[in-house]
């Protein structure tokens, strides 16, 4: 349980989730020439002015920061597509729309570093925020309908969403599991008795007599 029971906060920090998303490929349009880059994480380039090329998001941001390229926002980030997604999310309360696994992190990084490359940025931004809110609300309401089970499957849940709901989902599933499996309950109880001991050392009862 290291990292899970020890802290009530998310398993992955927001920075770590972002780090993971930074390997997603993006299309950039360089404004300079550069030889191919043979990186540990893959080979990219060669780069020519005005010729679109695919690079990981972190590289796109690094080049953008130095004024060496423009970033082409992914197609799902268009106002049209996002409007449709939002409608879909609102209409169908039971399921989630298909969004990229890292849609929150990707859009955030692009808003922070490539705002002038995104057409209708204010609209895009507010649509993505709405989609995010509707989805998080949906996760919450769907979790209320949880029943005792050994597995919960959610299609199209994104990385950041998993990280946010994980502590709650894991704890509730564990509680159900405990009620369903009396044999296991004994184990879990002894574990939970043991847990506090880890944080606040207690002298075992039989040793106390000698104090």
């Amino acid at each position: 349980m290291a990292g899970q029971s020890d802290s009530p906060i998310s398993l992955f920090s927001p920075e770590e989730v972002e780090f993971i998303a930074e390997d997603e490929l993006m299309e950039i349009v360089p404004n300079m020439r550069m030889d191919p880059l043979n990186f540990i994480c893959g080979d990219f380039g060669p780069f020519f002015p005005q010729i679109p090329v695919k690079v990981p998001l972190w590289l796109a941001v690094a080049l953008k920061k130095r004024g060496k390229c423009t970033i082409r926002p992914p197609q799902w980030m268009s106002v049209e597509n996002l409007t449709q997604l939002l409608e879909g999310e609102r209409e169908d309360q039971g399921t989630f729309q298909a969004v990229p696994f890292h849609y929150i992190e990707i859009s955030r990084l692009l808003f922070d570093h490539a705002r002038e490359d995104i057409p209708d940025i204010y609209m895009v931004r507010s649509l993505i925020e709405d989609i995010r809110d509707v989805r998080l609300h949906k996760v919450e309401t769907n979790l209320e309908k949880f029943s005792a089970t050994s597995a919960v499957k959610i299609a199209h849940l994104s990385a950041m969403e998993v990280n946010v709901v994980r502590p709650f989902v894991v704890r509730s599933l564990q509680a159900f599991y405990k009620h369903d499996n009396p044999v296991v309950t004994a184990d879990l109880d002894s574990m939970s008795n043991r847990q506090p001991q880890v944080r606040q050392p207690q002298v075992p009862n039989n040793a106390r007599r000698f104090e």
């Binding site: 298909a98 089970t149 050994s150 597995a151 919960v152 499957k153 959610i154 299609a155 199209h156 849940l157 998993v162 994980r166 989902v169 894991v170 599933l173 599991y177 369903d180």
Partner: peptide, 17 residues
């Protein structure tokens, strides 16, 4: 605890034991 297996495709996220 279930006869039916949990079937997952790439886009699914599951919380399981």
């Amino acid at each position: 605890d279930s006869e039916r297996p949990l079937e997952m495709e790439r886009h699914d996220v599951s919380f399981v034991l």
